[in-house]
Structure formats: structure tokens, C-alpha cells
């Protein structure tokens, strides 16, 4: 009977999680910095924008170096992988632990295929910006309108 038991509490929990994720998605822009990491579905959070020739993906990764990160592009899929290491433990007491540590992987689906060979990334003051050039077919084309 494995897996067929009705577990209303678990169902309710997952419903609550879904609802909270939905709320975070809608209001995350304003509230996420107050939300504890445990409730956060994805890390790092991303902002994505475009110009005519590129998509740009930005993430806040304070304390990380480029060599702590792996960035892959496969078709239209961007993967950001890394590990944020804890400061070495010395004798003492932690009064507050709000910052996030550990391994993470974030996969993001871009609207279109990009030119994987030309992708570049920059990490500055803990902010990662990935520039992904669009393939020629996904760039906007100007349509010439001729007057007869």
C-alpha cells in the first residue's frame, strides 16, 4: 500500500508551500530579503532582461569568486552552479546566522536559443552578470515598408 495512504497534513503542507511560493513569486521583489532561506525555492534569485542582441541574467552572489562558479549554456538553458563556503570555524559563538552557505544549482530557461560560444560573464562586487548573445533568428528584424 506504499504511497497510497491519504496524508492530509502533507497535502496541506505542500499546498501551503505552493501558496507561499506563489506569494513569493508575486511579491518577492519587495519581500524576499526578509524571507528565510529555508523557504526559498531557488538560489540564486535572477533578474533577466534583454536588448536587441542579448539576453542578460543577473544574480547576487556576495563573497563568491569566479572560480567558485560554473556556468553552462545548452541551447536555451542556462545553468549556474557553485558553492558558497562558510568562514572557517574558530573558537567563538555565533549570535546570528542569516547568510546562506552551501552548494547550489540554478537552471534557467531563456526565451530563445542563444549563441553558447559567445556567452560571457562578469562578477563584480558580488553581482554576477551573464551576457548571452541571441542567435540571428531571434533578433528583432526591421521590416522595410515600401510605398508603392
Amino acid at each position: 500500500m506504499l504511497g497510497t495512504r491519504w496524508q492530509p497534513w502533507l497535502e496541506m503542507q505542500s499546498e501551503m508551500t505552493r501558496l507561499r511560493d506563489e506569494m513569493d513569486r508575486v511579491f518577492g521583489r519587495w519581500s524576499h530579503r526578509r524571507a528565510p532561506f529555508l523557504g526559498q525555492a531557488a538560489f540564486p534569485l535572477l533578474n533577466v532582461w534583454e536588448d536587441d542582441n542579448h539576453y542578460f541574467v543577473e544574480a547576487e552572489l556576495p563573497g563568491m569568486e569566479m572560480e567558485d562558479l560554473e556556468i553552462f549554456v545548452n541551447g536555451s538553458q542556462l545553468t549556474i552552479k557553485g558553492e558558497r563556503k562558510e568562514p572557517a570555524g574558530e573558537p567563538g559563538t555565533w549570535h546570528r546566522r542569516e547568510r546562506l552557505y552551501g552548494k547550489f544549482t540554478r537552471i534557467f530557461e531563456l526565451p530563445h536559443v542563444v549563441d553558447a560560444d559567445q556567452v560571457s560573464a562578469e562578477l563584480k562586487q558580488g553581482v554576477l552578470t551573464v551576457s548571452l548573445p541571441k542567435q540571428p533568428e531571434s533578433r528583432p528584424r526591421k521590416i522595410e515598408v515600401r510605398a508603392n
Binding site: 513569486r25 518577492g28 521583489r29 519587495w30 524576499h32 530579503r33 531557488a42 534569485l45 535572477l46 533578474n47 533577466v48 532582461w49 534583454e50 539576453y55 542578460f56 543577473e58 547576487e60 526565451p111 553581482v127
Partner: peptide, 14 residues
Amino acid sequence: RQGGVQYLYAEYGV
């Protein structure tokens, strides 16, 4: 960091 850009996808505020 991006002046007046329209985000396709925005998960955090700056």
C-alpha cells in the same frame, strides 16, 4: 544597475 530596463523576469529588487 540597469537604468529603466523592462525586466523579462524579476525575482529580486535592487
